[in-house]
């Protein structure tokens, strides 16, 4: 029985490979590996927690589990925008840490094969988003692929917390 379960899991892992959830912030389309995503929820009541960096908006109650939420807009040093009914929270889990990512809207799930992913241009060309670790191409469209680990665990977060 466990064997079967493992098989199913493997298949699932396999089918997840190369799949990205895309979302929109401003004009750009970003992609995040689907394996990190646990669920997508609409915007909900956020409890502010004092003394956190501005991009951590606070904590939410996700069916009894309390998770912090990060405004990806602010994380990317873009302007704050009012939340509306298109605003979504993508709940991701990395290394047992769950975090909600607030994005303008969620687009779709797409397959991007490895061959279609190119590394991001280096910073000398003026491209400065360090949370992007690749650029995926689907036909004419370009999706900026996010390094989830970097997004969550960038040292800057701690530093900011310490300064404040």
């Amino acid at each position: 029985m466990t064997k079967e379960l493992e098989n199913v899991m493997e298949v699932e892992e396999d089918t997840q490979k190369g799949k990205y959830l895309t979302f929109i912030i401003g004009k750009e389309v970003y992609g995040i590996e689907i394996k990190y995503v646990t669920e997508i929820i609409g915007i909900q009541q956020i409890t502010e927690v004092p003394e956190l960096p501005d991009y951590i908006k606070g904590i939410i109650n996700l069916r009894g589990k309390i998770i912090p939420v990060m405004d990806v807009r602010l994380r990317f040093k873009k302007e704050q925008r009012e939340y509306n009914d298109r605003t979504c929270i993508i709940v991701v889990e990395i290394n047992d840490i769950s975090v909600g990512l607030i994005v303008d809207s969620v687009a779709e799930v797409v397959d991007i094969s490895e061959n279609d992913i190119v590394p991001p241009p280096n910073s000398s060309t003026g491209f400065s988003n360090k949370y992007i670790n690749g650029i995926g191409k689907i036909g004419e469209d370009v999706k900026l692929l996010i390094d989830c680990n970097m997004l969550l665990n960038d040292e800057e977060c701690e530093n900011l917390a310490m300064i404040s």
Binding site: Q45, T47, V49, P50, E51, L52, I56, I59, I60, N61, G64, I66, I67, P68, I97, S98, V99, L152, E158, A161
Partner: peptide, 27 residues
Amino acid sequence: VKALPRYIKKVRGIGGCTLLGDGSISL
């Protein structure tokens, strides 16, 4: 009493959080 999520580092003067009857969170 619930602990704050691990992702949020220690906030001075706050020992944890809890859910109120209406589902909202109180520190």
